[in-house]
Write a protein that binds this DNA or RNA. Structure first.
Lengths: 171, 171
DNA sequence: TATAATATCTAGATATATCTTGATATATTA
DNA sequence: TAATATATCAAGATATATCTAGATATTATA
């Protein structure tokens, strides 16, 4: 159950954006957001997210179905069962919840957009693999390097970045 | 509770100079200083300090959470709970406290800087900052790049890595 | 100055919600 | 019959917060 089920208002006015969305409690916003578009059943939601993320994120049934059950308990959705599929429709109550948490929901959505809206995940995955290999090397250097060496390394990174920016920019 | 809850400025000349940074009562300044940047919850603060110190300092929950609770009691922060996370926002009262203790706070901050950079952490932190900037650029590229461009980027990263490996290796 | 009292901190145990992995069940479809 | 679509469930991992016990530093007191 949502831990904050019973929490009443009294919140601060501006909530700063956390830099890495899709943290612990965020899946419910994603799912409700999908239900806002149109009614769906659980499996459909799983597929949809897998597809939207180009296969990089496929939520587990153990996350999706209990969440839907919770929505049901809290009146955020109504459901109809047919042919073994339980289809969930968002209710006014659910819409209200989304509106109330607009900041969180927007954050999550924009994060997803940034992360997922590209076509060439496969190729990019190789790039990211190389990027993380770099991180390993940097980790090895930690604590043993002197000022001059760190300066050189930093310059290498800056150069790499500007070269990459050129490639990205020139279209 | 903060031992000096009720002291005001007149006491300040009693204060001996501290030579080792981050002494007993100093954590509160560090935390409030983080909250000045943006609202955060406890776990986030722990992670942030761990990251900023490159893993050399990770405050224990038994230090962080009671401190936040104290802030709350004294009106230095307001908090909201959502998704199981209690997010603390600094209040005017808290800002005033920081300002009032500016000397202490600055001292702590500069000692941290000195101490951490003494261990190479400061410099390495700049390297890591640059590294993460690179990640941002890569993120921008996700959407639009073709095969040739990703190949080039990957090569840039590979080159950067091997250059860095040379620097690290040659001691 | 010595000792006691108190505050702060570390380490780690405990609690709870969320999520992942993966197993199982059943119905449908190829 | 095999594969796919759909749902349920259990076990374990992780994120986050709370709490306790003990160590150490600081202040108060005798």
């Amino acid at each position: 159950m949502f831990r904050d089920r019973f929490i009443r208002g009294e919140r601060s006015f501006h909530r700063q954006s956390r830099e890495s969305a899709f943290q612990k409690g965020d899946l419910k916003y994603v799912i409700l957001d999908l239900l806002k578009d149109k009614p769906r059943h659980g499996y459909e939601i799983i597929r949809e997210l897998e597809e939207q993320s180009m296969g990089t994120y496929k939520p587990s049934p153990g996350a999706v179905y209990p969440t839907l059950q919770m929505f049901e308990d809290m009146g955020y959705t109504s459901s109809t069962e047919r042919d073994g599929k339980k289809t969930y429709t968002i209710t006014d109550e659910g819409l209200r919840f989304l509106a109330e948490r607009k900041d969180s929901a927007d954050e999550v959505r924009s994060h997803i957009k940034r992360r997922w809206s590209f076509k060439n995940v496969g190729r990019m995955a190789m790039v990211m693999k190389e990027y993380h290999a770099l991180e390993n090397v940097l980790g090895r250097g930690f604590r043993t390097l002197d000022a001059e060496q760190t300066k050189q390394i930093r310059e290498i990174l800056i150069n790499a970045r500007s070269e990459i920016e050129n490639i990205i920019g020139e279209e």
